[in-house]
Amino acid sequence: MSLTVSEQIIAILAREAVLDPHEVRPEMTIEDLGLDSLGLVETIFAIEETFDISVPFNANDPAQGDFDISSVGAIVAAVERLIAARGAALA
């Protein structure tokens, strides 16, 4: 059985934050996870590689832009939108 998008993102975040995936909850923020700026940049890279998408993200102002990183749940939703957009572009 393949993993869901949410499960894969949680696995990435857990790896970067050195947590058990069960400890990562949708309402948690980047700060709650204890990710620093480089950890966040690595996370975005891992997400791009895993889902073959391009994430609009500038480390100078992570809160700005079209990619919502305000919580784990928000990141999952944003990635799902990017995957859908990619699918639409290919269709």
Binding site: V41, F45, F57, A59
Partner: peptide, 11 residues
């Protein structure tokens, strides 16, 4: 430039 893009600090 690809190397620098990776850091996400470029305008």
């Amino acid at each position: 430039i690809k190397a620098w893009e990776g850091l996400r600090v470029m305008s």
